[in-house]
């Protein structure tokens, strides 16, 4: 399946629902009045875009329709798409592999961090980048075994310690090992942590300090990626804010876009935080990760023109 198809099929249900809603509305009203805009707003909200984004998008349509007097379907859809693209910000992950790059995979519980770490490692290893994984989730049962299984699949070494060991010491070991072996990409899988738990947030801070300190001598570049589950509702915005407060986030990874979820929350988070979308998780398999493509994403959120 091509990447486009993956995005499409992942969000196909959404598209179907949106298209149906849109057609129904367009058919019953014919013209663009307030009821139409309300309905459109609801469709966006139902995709988890949040009230704020939905209102902003519908306001913009209202404004333009008023100014330009155009009310046809294609025009409205085109406008909506442009406005959504203006919100979404993407950034490819193309670091300078002259140096060691350290990627922290962060997020709340169960979003898909370990899986994403595994897929990422596989993808870069395959591109010939010397890659390493570090199992810094020392809390959850079998988190280490899970990452080791991914390491095996990806053909990438996994640095680990035992359950309940200090995650910062795993980071330390991994940094030493990465430096010694000339690794260019070190991916650190961290434990799921709810952002409202200060002890877990400061544990994260500590891991970062260690990585920064140990990486200094070799000019290592640290990247912080927050993994968001596409099924998540408005709490994702709070998650992004809270994680960004403790550690500056360099990018967002939206997982499970292949599922029931519409992933409209990506709009809300990027609108709120201006953090770029970097990757999309599109399944549980090793190849199911792709650079985030805003155009495809928006296309699959909107009804067919």
């Amino acid at each position: 399946m091509s990447l486009f198809d993956k995005f499409r099929s992942g969000l196909s249900k959404t598209r179907q629902a949106v298209t149906e809603g849109f057609n129904r509305v367009a058919a019953s009203f014919g013209v663009f009045d307030e009821d139409f805009l309300d309905e459109l707003e609801m469709i966006l909200i139902q995709a988890d875009s949040g009230v704020q984004v939905a209102t902003k998008l519908t306001d913009s349509i209202r404004e333009r329709v008023r100014k330009e007097g155009k009310v046809d379907r294609e025009y409205v859809l085109g406008t909506l798409k442009d406005d959504m693209l203006a919100i979404l910000e993407t950034k490819p992950f193309r670091p300078d592999f002259e140096h060691l790059n350290v990627v922290f995979i962060l997020g709340v519980n169960g979003t898909g961090k370990t899986t994403t770490a595994g897929k990422l490692a596989a993808s870069f290893q395959r591109q010939g980048i010397k890659t390493m994984l570090a199992a810094a989730d020392t809390f959850r049962a079998a988190a280490i075994e899970q990452l080791q299984a991914w390491g095996e699949r990806a053909g990438v070494p996994v640095i680990s310690n035992t359950l309940r060991s200090d995650p910062a010491s795993v980071v330390f070991d991994a940094m030493q090992s990465a430096k010694a072996r000339g690794v260019k990409l070190l991916i650190i899988d961290t434990a799921g942590r709810l952002h409202n738990k200060p002890n877990l947030m400061s544990e994260m801070e500590k891991m970062h300090r260690v990585a920064a300190r140990e990486g200094e001598t070799v000019g290592a570049v640290i990247h912080n990626f927050l993994v968001l589950d596409a099924t998540t509702g408005q709490n994702a915005v709070i998650q992004a804010r809270a994680f960004n407060e403790v550690t500056t986030l360099d990018g967002l990874i939206i997982t499970k876009l292949d599922g029931n979820a519409k992933g409209g929350i990506a709009l809300a988070v990027v609108e709120d935080m201006d953090i770029p979308l970097v990757f999309a998780g599109l399944g549980e398999g090793i190849d199911d990760l792709a650079p985030f493509d805003a155009e495809l994403f928006v296309d699959s959120l909107l009804p067919e023109a």
Binding site: R140, A141, A142, A143, E145, Q146, A149, R153, L163, E284
Partner: peptide, 16 residues
Amino acid sequence: VHRPAAADQLNILAKS
């Protein structure tokens, strides 16, 4: 039977 180490995870918790 799908997710890596899923059974291990439950097994460890059960032991505890």
